[in-house]
Simulated scan of single mutants.
Amino acid sequence: MSEILRIVAAGDHFVRPRLISEAISGVWPREGSGRGFLVRELTLGWPLEPFGPVAEVDEASGTEDELIAALADDREVLVTQMAPVTERVLEASPALRLVVVCRGGPVNVNLDAAKVNDVRVCYAPGRNAAATAEFTVGLLLAALRRIPQAHNLLAGQRSWQGATYYTYEHSGLELEDLPVGLVGYGAVGSRVARALCAFGAQVMVYDPYVRGEIHGLRVSSLDELLRRSRVVSLHARLTPETRGLIGSRELALLPEGAVLVNVARGPLVDEDALCDALESGRLSGAALDTYEREPVGAGSRLFGLADRVVMTPHLGGASRAVAEKAARIAAEEVGRWARGETLAHCLT
Rank of each mutant, 00 (worst) to 15 (best):
I4K: 13
A9K: 00
A9N: 03
D12I: 04
F14V: 03
V15N: 00
P17Y: 02
R18E: 09
L19A: 09
S21H: 09
A23P: 06
V27M: 13
W28H: 12
P29Q: 13
P29A: 10
S33F: 14
R35F: 15
R35H: 14
F37R: 01
L38V: 15
R40W: 03
E41W: 04
E41P: 02
L42P: 04
P47T: 03
P47W: 03
L48W: 09
E49H: 12
P50I: 10
P50T: 14
A55Y: 08
V57Q: 01
L67Y: 00
I68H: 00
A70S: 03
L71W: 00
A72C: 11
V77W: 02
T80F: 00
Q81A: 10
A83P: 02
R88S: 07
V89G: 00
V101H: 01
G105N: 09
V107K: 04
N108F: 04
N110D: 10
D118E: 15
Y123N: 06
G126V: 02
A133R: 00
G138Y: 05
G138I: 02
L140C: 09
L140E: 01
A142L: 10
L144K: 09
L144Q: 01
L144V: 05
I147A: 07
H151T: 14
H151P: 13
L153Y: 02
L154T: 10
G156R: 07
G156K: 13
G156T: 12
G156M: 09
S159N: 13
T167M: 08
E169I: 15
E169A: 15
E176V: 15
L178A: 00
P179C: 06
L182F: 03
G186L: 07
F199R: 10
Q202H: 12
Q202M: 08
V203N: 00
D207Q: 09
D207F: 07
L217K: 12
E224N: 12
R227V: 13
S229E: 00
S229R: 00
P240K: 14
E241N: 11
E241F: 13
R243G: 06
I246Y: 01
L251Y: 05
A252N: 10
V263Q: 02
A264C: 08
A264K: 06
C275F: 11
C275W: 10
D276A: 15
G281M: 08
L283E: 02
L288T: 07
D289N: 10
Y291K: 01
E292D: 15
P295R: 12
G297A: 06
G299E: 07
R301Q: 11
L302H: 06
F303V: 09
G304A: 12
V309N: 00
M311D: 10
L315I: 14
A327Q: 03
A331N: 01
V334F: 06
E341V: 09
